[in-house]
Amino acid sequence: MNTTQPRAGDRETILDLFPLSGWGRFKAAFVDLREGLRLLPLAMTLGWLDIKMRYRGSVLGPFWLTITTAVMVIALGFLYAELFGIVLKTYLPFLALSLVLWGYISTLITESTTVFSQETRLIQSARRPFSVFAIQAIIRNLLVLAHNAVVVLVVFLIFDIVPLKIWLILPALGLWIIDSLAITLCLGLFGARFRDIPPIVGSLLQVFFFVTPVIWKPELVGTLGGWLLIDPFYPLLAIIRAPLLGETLPLVIWEAALAHSAVLIVLAAVFFARFRARIAYWV
């Protein structure tokens, strides 16, 4: 029998077998998020490795996505500019920027539904903060967004568009990062618990692509434009799109974006704190 007593300087690990309740769950969720941010270099490395492994053996690598985006912008740009009766110089920069931003949103939301379920082995083999997997997915999609941004840059150069107030997108980018983390954690939980979530989310994104001003301008709906504020994607697109295109952004759009984000953050905090401890069992 080992009768060795712990020394004064030793750290003792205490395993609490009782589930946390009340504010204890929120505290544990906060610690998880803090530790995930502390492992940001690891998440960045894993996100970059995901890109490399996805296009391993490819000559152009992730630039295939850039080429695909460029072809779509050119094809849809000439077609819809003629259908909507809009000058190409005005419509093509709008479309290029919208498709690139929507590509980030739709891909991140789609991947967030499996952000935990596809990491079953890592989650069950070692103890690490769950938020690091969400951060890894965000880093991966930000890298893809950076590749596709080349299309927007080329279109802006062709039509001589110079954003004079580019600094206005900085708070918008900050809000995008916060929302990205919230939606990834929230949908990651639901996707781990209910395997029907990925196809449901994919179907809803297809609907939102057409009802959100991505390939069409919000001015085309006239007096019905106020109803667009109910769409959670429209304000998020507008707060980045308007400054880059040199357009004036009404304050009500920022208010709508902050309202949608507040609801999303609260839901993500509640669900992540409530069900975080069950992720390892669900996957």
Rank of each mutant, 00 (worst) to 15 (best):
233 F>G: 09
233 F>L: 07
234 Y>Q: 14
234 Y>I: 12
234 Y>P: 14
234 Y>H: 12
235 P>Q: 10
235 P>Y: 10
235 P>F: 04
235 P>A: 14
236 L>C: 01
236 L>E: 04
237 L>C: 08
237 L>I: 06
237 L>D: 08
237 L>F: 06
237 L>Q: 10
238 A>V: 12
238 A>F: 10
238 A>Q: 15
238 A>D: 09
239 I>E: 03
239 I>Y: 05
239 I>S: 03
240 I>E: 13
240 I>T: 15
240 I>D: 03
242 A>I: 02
242 A>M: 12
242 A>C: 11
242 A>Q: 05
243 P>K: 10
243 P>T: 12
245 L>V: 13
246 G>W: 15
246 G>Q: 15
247 E>A: 07
247 E>P: 01
248 T>C: 01
248 T>N: 12
248 T>R: 10
249 L>H: 09
249 L>G: 06
249 L>C: 08
249 L>E: 07
249 L>M: 15
250 P>F: 13
250 P>T: 15
251 L>M: 00
251 L>D: 04
252 V>Y: 08
252 V>H: 02
252 V>S: 05
252 V>A: 03
253 I>H: 01
253 I>T: 11
253 I>V: 12
254 W>D: 00
254 W>G: 01
254 W>M: 03
254 W>I: 04
255 E>F: 07
256 A>S: 12
256 A>L: 02
256 A>V: 04
256 A>G: 07
258 L>A: 04
258 L>E: 00
258 L>M: 02
258 L>I: 07
259 A>K: 09
259 A>Q: 09
259 A>R: 06
259 A>N: 09
259 A>D: 05
260 H>T: 10
261 S>Q: 14
261 S>M: 10
261 S>R: 14
262 A>P: 09
262 A>M: 05
264 L>F: 12
264 L>V: 07
264 L>E: 06
264 L>P: 11
265 I>G: 00
266 V>W: 15
267 L>N: 08
267 L>W: 12
267 L>D: 04
268 A>E: 04
268 A>L: 06
268 A>Q: 05
268 A>P: 01
